[in-house]
Design a protein around this nucleic acid. Structure first.
Lengths: 199, 199
DNA sequence: GTCTATACGACGATAGAC
DNA sequence: GTCTATCGTCGTATAGAC
């Protein structure tokens, strides 16, 4: 059953996730989180006994699931791996642009800020990236790319997307993301052909 | 002339740059910076009247110059644009790996943490990215790629590198950077051919 | 002009009231 | 079990001694 406490816990993780995107991990104070979640301060330590670190892990896990869903939906509705990749990146371009370049990838920023300081957070970020690379590689394999190459290419695709979001935010332009969409779609399409897939 | 004060100022910027890479911008306190630079606390506000923000801008500018030099050296010594791109990325893989995955791109993390909060820092980051994209595009043009496509491709190349550094740090493996090196080198080489360059 | 001592606020975390 | 009041620490910034 879903108790009221569970809802509070979910709201806290969602708030943390949202604030991390605009202010980073260190820049997001617990006061801001409980304020945004409309939760009392003590409940943070009730639901997340490890404090901020546990809340951060929950936020990263949540982000992983959300983007994983976006990938799955694009893979299901798009006609080809290349089209799916393009759809995902264009969706991100819309999100980033419509947020006035305030939203970015929470996993990237937590990796960069805390990867060297918290092993728990670093592992959570590694798992998040893996949860995006694996389905991307699987999608490429359905296009006829051999497993090893699919994994390599999927890693690069995810890296490119992460980087493009950052460059887009810095330049306040969706051009880097659109450029990434074009190049990645072309790259995915080409790999399918060169691997001897359905041609 | 170079006064002692100028050296202190440079050391402060270098220390800020180094610490940002492992702990992020918000996670780096001025106390840690002056400690690392072996400088008295007041000199921060003497050399950087705007405080932490000014110091952050100096660190980002410094990072921009350093990586710009790496690109220029690779472009000068490598035999082709593709080889230059590979050399740059492999050099990054060495740096990231040998630092035990503690060093990353300071411009990325400042963009993600402060891009939405400080216009000055955001612009410094945008300038940094531009200072890497422009010479990369120029290099691609020497390979026969037309200007517009060179710019697009250069943006994607820089994005991919930024993202690969992040994924490498999260997974504690240089594999994402090596994968990026392979794919980017191939991409650069292909663009040269498809554009009707020296074949 | 350089640097030390300090002010003031926000942080994460906890103890204990309800 | 849920929340409020508070503690100690560290943050940035500054005032003033040298």
């Amino acid at each position: 059953m879903t108790t009221k406490g569970d809802l509070t816990k979910a709201r806290l993780a969602e708030s943390m996730l949202e604030l991390i995107q605009t202010s980073g991990y260190s820049g997001t104070g617990l006061n801001a989180v409980i304020d945004h979640a409309a939760a009392p301060k003590g409940s943070v330590y009730f639901h997340f006994p490890d404090g901020k670190e546990g809340l951060g892990v929950a936020a990263v896990d949540l982000a992983a699931k959300q983007f994983e869903s976006l990938i799955a939906e694009a893979a299901a509705s798009a006609g080809s791996p290349a089209a799916a990749a393009r759809a995902v990146i264009e969706a991100l371009a819309t999100i980033v642009g419509e947020s006035d370049y305030r939203l970015g990838c929470p996993v990237s920023v937590v990796t960069l800020e805390m990867g060297a300081e918290s092993e728990r957070l670093r592992q959570a970020c590694a798992s998040a990236f893996e949860s995006w690379i694996a389905p991307t590689a699987a999608l490429l394999e359905t296009g006829g790319v051999e497993p090893a190459q699919a994994r390599t290419l999927a890693t690069v695709v995810v890296s490119t997307i992460e980087g493009a979001v950052i460059v887009s935010r810095a330049t306040r332009s969706t051009q880097p993301l659109h450029a990434a969409a074009d190049v990645v779609a072309d790259l995915v399409d080409r790999s399918r052909q060169s691997a001897g897939g359905t041609r």
